[in-house]
Nucleic acid binder design. Structure first.
Lengths: 131, 131
DNA sequence: ATTTATACGCACCAAAAGGAGAGTGACTGT
DNA sequence: ACAGTCACTCTCCTTTTGGTGCGTATAAAT
């Protein structure tokens, strides 16, 4: 399914917006982004290491990276105190809070339906051989 | 905390459930999963190659892989017609549709706020050197 | 004088994701 | 006879992701 010349997909909806939105979803629907969003939503203003602890299992590298992207996208604000040792506070912007609210439905869904998923997986593995 | 669907989320979250839910989110918040979910929601029953075309830019490998996982998780049903050339129909299950509905808020959010993100990025890059 | 604490940046490396392309099997249209 | 169709699977290869550990600045605490 290659398309060397590019355009063969019929666009029934506005393709530009569609593409834009997809791009955003692709970046935003990231594991760490969602987790950090939730942690900040729940705890309010937090410092770097606190976020790391509350998120759980994230490396410093990923924490920095994700936080930076979120700052760039305008989901979090970053306040640096010029003290030593360094102190940086993060919290959600209005935009970040609205995104968090949008994701809320997904969290809720997962909480409600995890048992269904589990059951489905078991059934699937029983139907098909499980090597 | 309120969600668009109007239900409530408990203030205190059971850590075990929390862990479970995070695992699910990690797998479900996947670019291709979300995209396929959307095309199936929008078009109803579809065949393999049709999904590929409508999704756009997905390789056969990823399409197969994602579809398999979605079937395993119980989001799509897969109906094989024993004919030649092969014919396989996919469509959303009830569970899949409910997930799609949950993601709906995120899609809408992206559609509404993509301009904000764009503006934020421009501002960010202006603030921070890119000399 | 040495250690501790904080919020990173950087380099290196392993693992995973994912794309490209070829192969398959049997039937159907030319 | 032979190319075309569909829904894959398999192999090879590149790109991306992400973890680990080290370095840094410097004031306060030991």
């Amino acid at each position: 399914m290659r398309s060397p010349s590019g355009r063969e997909i019929p666009d029934e909806i506005d393709p530009v917006l569609e593409e834009l939105v997809r791009g955003i979803i692709g970046q935003v629907a990231d594991k760490w982004t969602m987790l950090i969003l939730e942690v900040l939503e729940e705890h309010g203003t937090l410092r770097f290491t606190q976020i790391g602890k509350l998120t759980g299992g994230i490396s410093q590298k990923m924490l920095t990276q994700t936080l930076r992207q979120m700052e760039r996208d305008g989901f979090v604000s970053r306040k640096v105190y010029p003290v030593i040792p360094p102190k940086v506070e993060y919290n959600l912007t209005e935009l970040g809070r609205s995104l968090s609210a949008a994701f809320c439905a997904v969290w809720e869904w997962a909480a409600v339906h995890h048992a269904d998923i589990d059951a489905s997986r078991k059934a699937f593995e029983e139907r098909n051989g499980k090597a």
